[in-house]
């Protein structure tokens, strides 16, 4: 069941050009929950002296993951778009390591989804970044 959901989500994500351009992949999908991975890539570096990924790449991961968590909510929205996103950058992601974000849609109304997300590199103790966001909810009926 959950594996089906993961396969469907992966197929959906594969159709988004910018998600495939950054080589992002879904690693977990559940009710109102999604986890996505962004592999390290020197093209996405923000500071060449340290090799740390640019915040914008982490933003993209958080945004996509938040949208995926919204779509995975049991109330099954037909579509979503980001309304707002706030990201706190706790520390630079370690160069060479993938960043994995996990987002949770913790509240859903007919029209708005409220999402929290956390991103880690291989150090699972201290997050790289945290985010809160609101997403629109489109329903056909």
């Amino acid at each position: 069941m959950s594996d089906d959901k993961l396969a469907i989500a992966r197929r959906f994500i594969a159709g988004i050009p910018h998600v495939t351009a950054l080589n992002m992949d879904i690693v977990e999908i559940g009710d109102g929950v999604a986890a996505m991975r962004l592999p390290y890539d020197t093209r996405f570096v923000g500071d060449p002296e340290t090799g740390v990924l640019h915040g914008g790449a982490v933003s993209t991961l958080m945004d996509t993951c938040g949208g995926a968590a919204t779509m995975a909510h049991p109330s099954a929205p037909d579509g979503t778009a980001t309304l707002s996103l706030r990201i706190d950058y706790l520390r630079g992601a370690t160069p060479g390591q993938a960043v994995t974000a996990r987002a949770e849609c913790h509240h859903m109304t007919r029209t708005v989804a409220f999402v929290r997300a956390v991103a880690h590199d291989e150090d699972t103790e201290t997050p790289v970044a945290t985010a809160t966001g609101t997403f629109t909810v489109e329903r056909k009926t």
């Binding site: 640019h54 933003s59 945004d63």
Partner: peptide, 14 residues
């Protein structure tokens, strides 16, 4: 079609 929100965010941050 629409731009990815992450691209817009990265553009504004840059």
């Amino acid at each position: 079609p629409a731009l990815h929100g992450g691209v817009t965010a990265a553009f504004l941050e840059l």
